[in-house]
Amino acid sequence: MEGLISGKKRTYDEFRSSIPSSVVTLFDELRSYCFTLGKNVIEDVRMHRVVFAKSITFRSFADIEPQRDFVIIKIKRDRKEPEKEIQIKSNDNLDEIKKLLLDAYTSIH
């Protein structure tokens, strides 16, 4: 509660220490890719997940949450469309996921 009261924001390094070791590399790869989409990508580290948004208007396009053996990623293209929820395992090919993330990022105006 102290962090919430004082307004201290949780860092990614703090969050990373709680990610199961079986998916930490996958999570890091997804995070890194989100940052390559543009200079205006904002990361919001929350208690159990990390949300990525475009610019200060904070239109989120990806919500990534680690689980024990996989990562849940929710991709949102538009406020009017339902988000797409996908479970990814460490050995899965990320090409399609990266295309979906790029599409969601570029669809935000």
Rank of each mutant, 00 (worst) to 15 (best):
V50H: 03
S17G: 02
P82T: 14
S22P: 03
I5D: 11
S90F: 09
D28C: 06
I75F: 07
G38W: 07
L37I: 06
F52I: 01
E85P: 11
I72S: 02
F15V: 01
I86T: 13
D63T: 13
S18P: 11
A62R: 05
G3P: 09
I64L: 07
I64P: 07
E29V: 00
Y12F: 03
F52S: 01
I86H: 08
K76P: 00
T57A: 05
H48D: 15
S21Q: 11
V24L: 10
F52L: 03
V23N: 04
N91M: 15
P82F: 09
S18M: 12
R79G: 03
L37E: 05
M47K: 15
N93C: 02
N93L: 10
K39G: 15
K74M: 05
Y33W: 05
K84M: 13
S17W: 04
L37S: 06
R10W: 13
L26N: 00
V71L: 02
K89M: 10
K8P: 09
T11L: 01
L30D: 04
E2R: 09
I88Q: 04
I73M: 10
S32W: 06
K9P: 04
M47D: 14
S60G: 07
C34D: 06
V50P: 05
P66N: 01
Q67M: 14
I56M: 05
S22K: 11
L37R: 09
I42F: 13
I88E: 06
P66M: 00
I64M: 03
K84H: 11
T11M: 00
K9M: 11
R49I: 00
S18F: 10
E83R: 15
F70A: 13
R46F: 08
S22D: 10
S55G: 15
F58I: 05
Q67G: 12
F70W: 12
G38K: 12
I72Q: 03
S90I: 13
K39N: 14
D92E: 08
L4M: 02
R46W: 10
V23D: 12
P66A: 02
R16H: 00
S60F: 10
T57F: 09
S90W: 07
P66V: 01
